[in-house]
Amino acid sequence: MRHRSKPTVRRALPALLGAVFALGTSLALPPLASAARVSNSVAVFSGIDKITGRITTFDVYIGETVQFGALQVTPRVCYSRDDTEAPKTTTFVEVDEITLDRKIRRIFTGWMFADSPGLNAVEHPVYDVWLKDCKAKSDLPPPDTAQAKPAQ
């Protein structure tokens, strides 16, 4: 004895699926909540000199280059969120190394995340650098009113 499915079920299934799809796409769903990112003018980095074990925290204005040991750190943007939102602090940064023969070599270009410092930190044989925070102002004068000074 052969078992056959009923022809009415076969015909009804595509119509039923189409109706469910149409209903699902026509429902007015609220837009996803998206926290607005706040653009900051200062990125706050920490760096460690592995020889001395000294950790230094330093502010860098967006577009400014600050030297930390043999590294030059230049943040391009620094984003955070409002205090009422979950923290998410990021920066896009370029890091160059000054080699022993005084040449400049790019060793890092990319995003750093303050909540995951080990994810995209700059790891150098002597120096490590990672993002700590972003902020709107610094105690240091902006680079157009003062010369860029070494962080160390």
Rank of each mutant, 00 (worst) to 15 (best):
R11P: 05
T109N: 06
A19Y: 05
R54I: 14
I55S: 15
A35S: 15
L29C: 12
E123Y: 13
E123L: 15
L16D: 10
A36G: 14
L100F: 03
I62T: 04
L71Y: 02
P141C: 04
G63P: 04
A146K: 06
P141Q: 01
A15W: 03
T65M: 03
P75L: 08
G24V: 02
S26E: 09
H3F: 12
L131E: 01
P125R: 09
F113T: 09
V44C: 09
M112N: 03
A151L: 08
A148L: 04
D115V: 11
G69A: 07
R106S: 14
D128P: 05
H3P: 00
I48P: 03
K6N: 15
Y79K: 05
T84R: 05
K137A: 14
A35L: 09
V38T: 15
P75W: 03
A43M: 04
V60G: 03
P31F: 09
V77S: 11
V60C: 06
L131P: 02
E64G: 11
P14Y: 01
E85T: 01
V60K: 02
I107Y: 03
A114S: 09
I62R: 02
L100E: 12
K88H: 10
L29T: 13
Q147V: 13
A35Y: 10
L100I: 07
K137W: 09
V9F: 09
S138D: 01
T8S: 10
A12I: 12
K137L: 14
P150W: 00
W111C: 11
D139H: 00
K149M: 11
Y79S: 07
I55C: 08
A86I: 00
F92P: 06
W111T: 15
R37C: 05
P143W: 02
N120M: 09
P150H: 01
L100R: 09
T145I: 09
L140A: 14
E94T: 14
N120A: 12
D101Y: 00
K149P: 01
A12V: 13
T91I: 08
V93F: 00
Y127V: 01
K88W: 05
T25H: 00
R54H: 11
V66E: 08
Q152M: 13
S5Q: 11
L140Q: 10
T91K: 03
F45W: 01
K135I: 14
V60S: 06
K132I: 12
D101E: 10
I107T: 04
T90K: 08
D139Y: 00
T109M: 10
V20I: 15
V44G: 08
A121M: 11
A86C: 00
F58R: 09
A36H: 11
D101A: 09
V77W: 02
L140E: 11
V77A: 07
T25Q: 02
P125T: 07
S138I: 00
R37Y: 04
D144H: 08
A43F: 02
Y79D: 10
D96E: 04
T109W: 02
V129E: 05
P30D: 13
K149R: 12
S138A: 02
C78Q: 06
A146C: 03
D115T: 14
H124G: 08
T109Y: 03
T65Q: 05
T52H: 05
G63C: 06
V126K: 14
I107V: 15
Y61G: 08
Q72S: 13
T57V: 13
R106H: 08
R54S: 12
G24I: 00
L131A: 03
K137T: 14
